[in-house]
Design a protein around this nucleic acid. Structure first.
Lengths: 177, 177
DNA sequence: TGATGCATGTAATCCGTTACATGATTCA
DNA sequence: TGAATCATGTAACGGATTACATGCATCA
């Protein structure tokens, strides 16, 4: 799956500018499992436009640069539907955190604790972003499904880390008393 | 984190050839959160060797091409330790499956069911690989930690999908009767 | 006899990120 | 006054994958 399909997918829910698509990706319900930068989004949109899969409309704004609002065309919807029928690639999960934890016993405990706390924080951030998205509404069957999945997975990870942190904590309390 | 550090890390546990490192990555306990191909592993090993972070030894084999067994040097261990102290990048998770599920209501139900079953299968594969690794032994504190994490997360995902499949199943039974 | 596993390596290519370039507005 | 937000875009660069090249052994 490439960024073109991604843009097509997002636009199929709501017309948007490149800037807004980026925001949706990093703050919306996609943030957990998708990533993209301006450097890939803008060229993708131009390309889609050239192929007739989306249309553009310039929206004037006072004191702001014009906004280029993209909408998906019928051909675009067809392309999306076709793209969705190919068997999806296996999930890719990359974690430097886990790699680092593999060498737990070589590392100072304070560093390990910090790393776990940072990871826990990341997971909680993802979780609360999901809760927000749910609250903001416009949920459909699909978004419910993916948020349920994300919630299940993130919560499980967070729980695990919390229990591991609890095993580490006593040493701090001892030092504080 | 780059592949050089990855190789250094794996070699710090056990000397190995490029081929074996690849196997370890795709079948060992790393498979869940790391990825690398020959095209990146072999050049990385040559480079590490040129920098004196690893040494090579050619192992003759009957009826097989020689094996180049790499071992980490003291300088290599130091480089690894230094590399582990930088703050790890945030986890990256990419899922075409979840993206596709976002459009659940546009897709034929049979397709959705297949996609979920495939995903469930992938998760179970990852899980059983972890169980195998645990059984094979040579676990340390670090590997216990990451396998615990992986197990928690994968199990949660699998449970969620199972419950969703159960909601879908009735229609099949109806058709069968 | 044909697929799979063992074993190493390179070159072309792709996909995307980072950094750069520009500029007004609003909020602290 | 300086940072953050809104807004678009390009060029250079990087990092890794894919495909290619080679070849013997084993198992079904």
């Amino acid at each position: 799956m490439n960024i073109r399909t991604l843009c097509l997918g997002i636009l199929s829910f709501q017309e948007a500018s490149g800037y807004e698509i980026k925001k949706e990706i990093e703050e919306g319900m996609f943030s957990h499992f998708i990533d993209a930068s301006y450097g890939s989004i803008y060229p993708a949109l131009s390309q889609l436009n050239a192929e007739g899969l989306v249309t553009v409309r310039a929206e004037e704004q006072t004191g702001r640069p014009d906004k280029k609002v993209y909408s998906v065309t019928e051909a675009g919807r067809a392309a999306l539907a076709k793209g969705l029928l190919v068997v999806p690639a296996r999930d890719k999960y990359k974690s430097e955190f886990l790699f680092e934890m593999l060498f737990k016993n070589m590392l100072p405990e304070a560093h390990v604790r910090l790393a776990i706390e940072k990871q826990l924080n990341d997971l909680r951030e993802d979780l609360s972003r999901m809760v927000e998205c749910r609250a903001e509404g416009q949920t459909n069957e699909g978004s419910e499904f993916i948020m349920g999945y994300g919630e299940a997975v993130l919560t499980a990870g967070a729980k695990y880390l919390e229990s591991k942190l609890a095993e580490l904590q006593p040493k701090i309390k001892l030092a504080a008393e």
